[in-house]
């Protein structure tokens, strides 16, 4: 479960990223965060993987108050949050396998165990044939599937995706969405920041809309909120 109470984010230059956000998201919900550029979508998502701390208010992920955490606790919390970016954030000069081994290395797992886990996931996501390919040689769709695979490896409770289909064609976008919906059906909470109305229509979920840092619409509340 994700809970935000009166959350406000003010950047160093004084710009208000978010203002008075109250939000409750149940476990297993698929939530689309929409809004124009600069509305605060990325800021909201960054709060959830503690890449950003609120200036005011409380952010709780699975009952943990992110504002009270030290570095070690943040690290452990992030193991339960999978993050996907529009620009993939992969190691471009490393292989697909090396990119996917990365989240498992932090547990000091044996190489054989890591190999088994990575291979299983690659087969499941139908990208096993790319295991030894260098990432920079993959297409955008393939890269994003690798990025999704990396986010899925640790079986996270929450997944946040910032414009995951933004640079993909419809076919690849649908593949990525299928992967995310599959996880959502298994109880993983998923937040997707997107402009893509087609995706929202084809893969229905709760929609919240931000405008200049304020929550102006929540489909669960059936209408405008907090305007």
């Amino acid at each position: 479960m994700i809970e935000l109470y009166k959350v406000e984010v003010v950047y160093d230059d004084g710009y208000k990223g978010l203002t008075e956000i109250d939000l409750h998201i149940e476990r297993g919900e698929l939530v689309y965060v929409t809004g124009n550029s600069g509305a605060g979508k990325s800021t909201l998502l960054r709060l959830l993987y503690a890449d950003l701390m609120p200036s005011r208010g409380i952010v709780k992920v699975e009952g943990q108050n992110l504002g009270n955490m030290n570095h070690k606790s943040v690290a452990f919390m992030r193991r339960n949050v999978g993050v996907i970016f529009q620009d993939y954030k992969l190691l471009e000069d490393a292989t697909v396998y090396d990119n996917l081994a990365l989240p498992l290395e932090i547990y000091y797992m044996k190489k054989s165990v890591i190999r088994d886990k990575v291979y299983n996931l690659l087969k499941m996501l139908d990208i096993f044939q790319h295991r030894d390919s260098v990432v920079q040689k993959l297409s955008g769709g393939e890269k994003q599937r690798v990025a999704v695979a990396r986010a899925l490896l640790n079986e996270p409770f929450v997944m946040v995706a910032d414009e995951p289909t933004g640079s993909l064609d419809a076919k690849n976008a649908d593949k990525v969405m299928d992967m995310l919906l599959h996880k959502s059906a298994k109880g993983t909470t998923i937040l997707i920041a997107t402009h893509d109305q087609r995706i929202i229509k084809e893969f229905p979920g709760r929609v919240i809309q931000l405008d200049r840092g304020k929550l102006i619409y929540d489909s669960k509340a059936k209408g405008k909120v907090n305007v």
Partner: peptide, 16 residues
């Protein structure tokens, strides 16, 4: 740099 930031993203501790 990039690898380190990705390690922190997936939950690596400072010790790691």
């Amino acid at each position: 740099h990039r690898a380190i930031m990705l390690y922190t993203l997936v939950g690596a501790t400072r010790f790691f």
